[in-house]
C-alpha cells in the first residue's frame, strides 16, 4: 500500500504539490492525468523518494520514504520506475542493463538474474536484442528494455512517468501493449500518461491533477464520462 499524507513540494517560486493526500491499495492500477506543470511527475517521484517533499509523509507499506535516513535499496526492492526518457545505461548491453541491479542490489546470482532477464525480454519481444547497446535500438525498443529492467527487480509496485511521451507515434503501440500486459498482473501500477484509451481500458482509478492538487478522482467511467467538473471537461476537450 502506498500512502501520501499532506505532501507539499515547494521550489523557489513554484508550489509543485500543495498538500496531496492519496492512498493506493496493493494491486490497484492508477492513472494520473492533468495539464503540464500540474505536479504529476513530482507526485510520482515522491513515491519512490526521487524527490523529497518539503513537508508531509510518504509511506510504502512500512517504509517511511520521506525519512532522511531511508534506505533506497529497500524502496527499490518494492518499487521500480520507468522514465519518459528511458534512462537505460548506455555503456551496457541490453542484458547488462536488465541484470545489473538485480545482481548488485538484490543479490540475485548472475545465472538466475540472466534467466529472469531473458524471460522478461522475451515478454517484451526483445529476446533477440540482448547483446545490443541502447543506442542501437529504436525508442520503442529502448522503452521496452526499460520496462524489462524494471520488471527484473521483481517489484510490487511499478511507477511509470509518461512512458510513451517521447516515442514516435508508430512506436507507441508496442509499448502500450507491454504496459497493458502489466496491468493484467497483480502488481500495483501508478502511471502518468496522456494515453486516455489506455487509462480507460486498464485503470481502476483515474486521478486528475491541477495546480499541485488532486482535482478529481474516480473510476475511468466516472472521470471521463460523468464528470461535471469544468476543469476536467476543459482538459478532456483539449486532449481528445
Amino acid at each position: 500500500m502506498i500512502l501520501l499524507e499532506n505532501v507539499r513540494k515547494n521550489f523557489a517560486e513554484v508550489q509543485a504539490l500543495k498538500g496531496v493526500n492519496l492512498k493506493i491499495e496493493t494491486g490497484e492500477k492508477v492513472v494520473i492525468i492533468g495539464p503540464s506543470g500540474s505536479g504529476k511527475s513530482q507526485l510520482i517521484r515522491c513515491i519512490n523518494g526521487l524527490e523529497r517533499p518539503t513537508s508531509g509523509t510518504v509511506k510504502i507499506d512500512d517504509i517511511l520514504v520521506t525519512s532522511k535516513k531511508v534506505d533506497h535499496r529497500a524502496i527499490a526492492k518494492k518499487c521500480a520506475m520507468v522514465f519518459q526518457s528511458y534512462n537505460l545505461y548506455p555503456h551496457m548491453t541490453v542484458l547488462k542493463n536488465v541484470t545489473l541491479a538485480p545482481i548488485k542490489v538484490l543479490g540475485i546470482d548472475e545465472d538466475q538474474a540472466e534467466a529472469d532477464a531473458y524471460q522478461y525480454l522475451e515478454r517484451v519481444g526483445l529476446a533477440d536484442k540482448i547483446d545490443k547497446y541502447p543506442s542501437q535500438l529504436s525508442g520503442g525498443q529502448q522503452q521496452r528494455v526499460a520496462i524489462a529492467r524494471a520488471l527484473n527487480m521483481h517489484p510490487e509496485i511499478m511507477l511509470l512517468d509518461e512512458p510513451t511521451a517521447a516515442l514516435d507515434p508508430e512506436m507507441v503501440k508496442e509499448v502500450l501493449d507491454v504496459i497493458k500486459s502489466l496491468a493484467e498482473r497483480d502488481m500495483t501500477v501508478v502511471m502518468v500518461t496522456h494515453e486516455m484509451a489506455l487509462a480507460r481500458e486498464a485503470a481502476d482509478r483515474v486521478i486528475f491533477m491541477v495546480n499541485g492538487q488532486i482535482e478529481e478522482q474516480g473510476t475511468p467511467e466516472q472521470v471521463f464520462d460523468h464528470t461535471q467538473n469544468p476543469r476536467m471537461l476543459d482538459f478532456l476537450s483539449k486532449i481528445l
Binding site: L50, I75, A76, K77, A80, L88, A101
Partner: peptide
C-alpha cells in the same frame, strides 16, 4: 535517477 530508483 535511474541508478537511485534501482537502489544502487
Amino acid at each position: 535517477e535511474a541508478a537511485k530508483s534501482q537502489g544502487f
